[in-house]
Every structure is written in C-alpha cells, then in structure tokens.
Design a protein around this nucleic acid. Sequence first.
DNA 1: ATCTGTGGACTTTTT
DNA 2: GTCCACAGAT
Length: 873
Amino acid sequence: MTSGFDDIPFFDEEPAPRKQPPGKPAAESPEPAGGLGIAARAMAARGQSRSPDYLSGLNPEQREAVETTEGPVLVLAGAGTGKTRVLTTRIAHILETGRAYPSQILAVTFTNKAAREMKERIGLLVGGAVEGMPWLGTFHSIGVKILRRHAELVGLRSDFSILDTDDIIRLIKQLIQAEGLDDKRWPARQFAGMIDGWKNKGLDPAQIPEGDARAFGNGRGRELYTAYQNRLKSLNACDFGDLLLHPIRMFRANPDILRDYHDRFRYILVDEYQDTNTAQYMWLRLLAQRSAPSRMTRDQTGAQASDRRPDDISSAPAQASADRRDTAASESKGRPTVNICCVGDDDQSIYGWRGAEVDNILRFEKDFPGAKVIKLERNYRSTEHILGAAGHLIAHNEGRLGKTLFTERTNPDDQKVMVHAAWDSEEEARAVGEEIERLQRGDADGKNHNLNDMAILVRASFQMREFEDRFVTLGLNYRVIGGPRFYERLEVRDAMAYFRLVCQPADDLAFERIINTPKRGLGDTTVRTLHDYARARDIPMLAAAADICETDELKPKARKSLWDVVQNFSRWSQRLETLPPNELAEQVLEESGYTDMWKNDKSAEAPGRLDNLKELVRSMEEEESMRAFLERIALVMDAEQNESMDAVSIMTLHSAKGLEFDTVFLPGWEEGLFPHQRALDEGGRSGLEEERRLAYVGLTRAKHLCHIWFVSNRRIHGLWQSTMPSRFLDELPNTHVEVAESDTSYGGYGRGGYGQSRFDKAEPFQNSYSTPGWKRAQANKTDATRDNWGNRSGHAVERIGYGESGPRGKTIEGELVAKSTSSTPSKFSIGDRVFHLKFGNGNVAGIEGNKLTIEFDRAGQKRVLDGFVEKVG
DNA sequence: ATCTGTGGACTTTTT
DNA sequence: GTCCACAGAT
C-alpha cells in the first residue's frame, strides 16, 4: 500500500493550502493540486442549486452523515446500512466542495482490504484515480509513514524494519535465555502476547501494572519488556505496536511536529471505530485535538495529571477513562472544531480479545462534546426475517447504543431463518452439503444459486475441516478464506530474510535465519561465536562476520564459507540502487544457493515452494525498490484472491465481518463452541456478549437465506462429547425462525437425541456412490487438475492464504473421490516407498486400480487414491 | 546434519 | 485427534 518511505509527499512538497475556516463554501477555494477534474466538477456543483449526483440516492440519514462535514460526527452504521458508501461519499463531498485537498484528509481503516475498497470507490465517485489520497490507509500503514519521516526522534533510522510475529518470538526467546530463565517454563509466545496486550493499551515498560510485570519470568516481566525494546532499537526495528506507539511518543515530545499534522489534517475519518484499541484511540486523539499550542502540550503530555511523568504515553487504563472525560471536556473549550467522523457499529465489536475497546465508541459523545450522532438503521441487505432474528438476538446484550435495523422491502416469500439439528458434525457437514447442492440445482426455491453466493461461517477454524472433507467427497468447489498466508510460508520468509539483510545489514534476525540456509556448514557453534562477537562490540552480526573473517577465531572451513556470504551480501547491497528489485531478488536467490536448495529437495512440497519463490519474485516486478517491497509485505499480509471460480466460501465468523452472501450457513451453534467456553470462562458476561455480537455478525451477513445448525455430538480435542444447543438459539424469535423438520431419522430441535447410538440412524446416502456429488466427481475426473499442494483433485479447491504445510488437516480419503478408471495400470507397485501430504511416508501394501493400500510409518494403514501420493527415493 | 519420538496446546487474528 | 517444537539419537 505504501510505497518507499522516500517518496512520501510531505508538507514542503505541496502547495500551501489556502487557509480557510472550516465550513467556508467551495467557491472561494483554489483549485486543489492535481485536481483539475475535481475542481471543475466542484465549480459545476456550486453553480447548481440541485445537489450533485453523488448525493442523490442517499437516504436522509446517510446524507446527513455525508453533509455534516464540520465538527465531530459519530455514524452508528448497522450491518448493511451503507457504511462504506457514507464514508466514501463523505470524502468525495469534502473534495468536490473544495473543503480540503485530498492530502488533507486522514482516513484510517483496519485492513488493507477496506482501504483499497475505499480508494476505489472514491475514485468512482470523484471520477478517475484518486492519486492524491496519501493518507488513506490502515492505522499501521499511516503509522509507518509518519514514523519513517521522524524515525530519528524515537531513536530509529528511517530505514527501520518491521518485524513479524515469527521474528519477534525468536527474539524474545533469546532474551528469555539471556536472562537465564527457562524458556520452557516461560514461553516466548506467551510473552509476545503480553507485550502485544500492553502495546494495545499504549503502555511503556515503566507503565505496565505491577501484577503483569510479576506474572512472567520470575517477576522479571518489566525487565524483559525493557530489554525487548532495547533490542528492537539496536536492531533498528519495530513491531506492529510500535508503528502506533512511536508516533505517539514522537508527537508528545515534539508539539511543533504535531502541530504540522494538525494543520495538515483538516478532516479525519475512521472506519470500524468500535474496533479501535487504546493505543489507536490515543493516536487519533492526538491528531484530532487541534488546540491552542501552549495548552495542548500540557494536556497531551499528560502533565495535567499531577501523578504522571511527562514521558507517559498515556494514563494507565485504570485511571484512563475518568481522566479522559475530564481532559476531553476541558480541551474542547475554545478550540477550532475537530472535523472527525468515526463510523462503526457497537454491535459488531468482535475484537475485544485483541485489545479493541468498545468503550471508545460508547464514549464518543463525551470525548468529543457537541458531537453529532447519526444512526443508520435502514438496512439494504437482508430480509426482515433475518433482521428480525438478528435484532432479537442482539437485544439480549446490555450497554448498547441501541439501534434497530429495519428494511422497507418485505416479501411474503422470504424464508425464515432455519434452524437444523444434526446428530454429529459429520452429519452436519453432510446436510449442509446437500442443502448447498439443492440450492445450486434450484430444487430449494426454483432459483439456481451460485456457489459464490453461499458461505459457511464457523466459530473456530477446526470446524472447517469437516466441511472440506465432505466437499472434497462431493466434488463441490470451495474456498477457504483466512489461515496462514502466502507471506508466512517458510520459503517466502527465508527469501524475505535475504532481502531484508540486503537492505538492512543490521537485521540480525534475518541474518540468523538464513546464515545456514541453505546449509553452509555454519552451524550453532559458528553462529554463537558470531553472536557473542557482535554483542561484545555492539555491532550487527553481518558486520561481525566480516570482521571475524580477518581473524583466526573460526576454523578455515567455516571462515571460507562465512566470507563468501559476507562477500555476497556486500555485492548485492551495491546492486540495490542499480538493479530492479525483481532482478536483484532473483540474483540473490540464485547466487545464495537458496533456489538450488529446493531444486535438490526431493520432497513433495519442494516444487510448490519453488513456485512460490517465483511468484514472490514476480510480484516484485512492479515495485520501485526492494525496500518499498519489504515494507508493503510487512504491512499487507493478505493474499489477493481469485474470485473467478464458482465456489462456496468457508471462513470464520471473524473474517466474515464486512462481507455479505445470499445464503449463509452457520454451523456449530452449541454451548461450549458457540458461545465458546473460553470466552465465557475468561470474559464472563462481556465475553458472552462478544460471542453474541459474533452471532449477530454471522446472521447479518445473509441477504436472503440463513441456515443455522447445531449437533448433539461433537469431537473436541479428539474426544466425542455430547453437546447442548446454544443458548443463542433460544434467543431467536419464533416469528422469524423456523425449525427445520429433520430429513434424517434423527433430529428435531430440542428433541435431544441422547441415548441413541450414532450408528442407529438410517443414512440416506450411506453409499456415497449414489450422491450427485459422486456423479459430478466422475464427470470431473477427466480434467483433474493439480492444485497448489501437488494434490490432484477432480474439483477446484482454493485456499486463500494457506500454504506451508499444505491443506492443514485436510483428509483426503481416496475411496470416495475415485477419479480415474481402473483400466490404467498403476504406476505404483507393491513395496514402493511413497509420500502422502497428510500421512507422510509409507510403503505400498496393496493396489486396486487407482486405490492404494499404504502402510504409513506413522498413520498406520490407509487406503488412498494414487493421485494423492508421490513416489519417493 | 537429519531423523524420530515426546510433550504440550488446542478460539477468534490484522497489522 | 493432530500439529508443532524441540531434544536426543543416528
């Protein structure tokens, strides 16, 4: 999203905005820079008494939200009420009326996807590309942009790198060991989580609660946090939290710089405000509170409260809310208006566990006195049954701002929300599969539904597997959204480590990652020597490596090998300025022997990894510099998805927020799973309420049909457990919900089913060979394709962002996917050593046509299709 | 250096 | 049940 730090448009590079009081009409405004079209249209708009095009088609509330440009505005936008439309139209309106230049608008979102979408839609409204919206982006991308410019003020260089979770855990692990603590007893992962939590709250090491500090590492939590920050600094690196916290520190310490930003950002817009955490809140407050310079400094540094030091990032959370109220009230007096517009929905706050504070949205009017609150309740997405069900459910939550969605489009044919019971999760998956096929065929309502219009939204990702299994069997196309991402794959991360080190020779984490990858005979001993050497002299490891080669501290073999690496990197670094990034990347991967490493690897996943590396290099073609690329990747973790094929989407409820589907399936509505037991245990009442909001999000994703399922038996951690229907089912209103008559012998809402054996029931499709899906699988067999993981499959499976270990936990039982005819002689013979993506290595014990019986080393005997195994050795 | 066995964890996840 | 990380063996 952001390109290199060196091309950030900044204050002095732009024409000075003509000072104009907020609210002055467009007519007096000069032509915005680079905005001929915009200006022309604005002029035209001004000349007409009629309202401009982009405003027509908005409902009165939306229109108010768009046109109330001055002063604080909170838009409470219920699900499907046109939230994005309001945000984008509002920006277009500000631009078209000449209230601000594109570069004077700060618009923050949580995800890159949302930012991208907004850019596109503003472009459509304003006509042409919105080149001049440099400050539309995620909290983090905007944070980086600010930080790159002022890095030295927080002790970093502007080419600092952004570490991902993996790096951070390795780093913390080193710190824990350096403290002489047992890294078994004190897991780095846990501490990383704690740091993340503190940073979400905007807490420096000095500010963390005593209890927290004691809770980890024999009471050394605070020291570890301090050590962690120091280490980051010496690595010239940041974690994600720092992208917000460093700017906050920098603003606090440099009021003059903050003032520049105040002058710049005439309008601030925030998407998904209910998801902001305390740090983001503080960041926004700093940018939003244009105030009298002298007073501001005091307030912003927290000096107002006597018990606080000036370097405090914030008041600690305990004191925060009370203080905030006071300061908000006092700060607002006699200040220029804050043109901040926050859009959100308290009923869709589902990220509390990640530090989001719903309280931020609940408190908006107190934070910004005189704020206008606009509720968008007119829903354009769902039927009245769906809205009725969702509304009734969410009404069980307390402490809401209280919205009730309604629709004006009622249709007597609309189906109620259906609740289905199934015996166990397997039957659930089967029933959902059948329903999907019914819809697809048009048997359900006479309409042929596209798979693209259907989604299965689960509470926890382990639920996905059963659906995947079933859909593989049926030959039903599906796509899994979420999960490990492209950029988290081993080979991609290795390659990135090389690139990082080329760009940033001080990146020790990258160094350690690749120094012996591929194997160069630089094992633990050498690395430790290097590490100590570097630490003793306070220099980066790559520099230490260069130095140490001049000495005789290493054995000749290691020294030679290390020297080669050092030479390579210095050569590559020199090419940084001259070669296009993709060419340099290719050279690095070739000359380092990294590509060869995978070429020589005979394992089944090696070809896929090589493909990924190619893809990585290819994706750098358009990039202007390797640095810019690294930054983009650090901030943009989502892989682009291929929407071309027709497929059912499978995803978690969390990743479904913001999406909509004609038909939505919501399986797993059982106590313990949904609401999740852990949410209840750890979150208590508020935990339950967040779960309920999650249910609300799920329901409101549906436009026309919504099917809820619950089962009586589910396997949890490997054990079969009988389960109770979710309490949320009882919270649905009868008027909008219908309990499906079970089409299997078991079933019926509330009928229990205990005491039955799961084998008692008659299976309608005991024989899978009679299912339509099997027939389809037969039909598809000719165009069996190879998917990304080297699986051959008769139907397309798309994984957005899955990789690394292949389809995680996808069971590919061959019997049911029979694809090739048995007439072709098998390419395997008894005794062959084979590899299976899921079961690992094994020996062929029997062959029947294309089905192999394999004795796996670990998984035991299995029957699988030959397409799913590879010969090895 | 690579393979194998064991122990622990296991909700949600963006940046 | 299953995945992952790591220690110890080969």
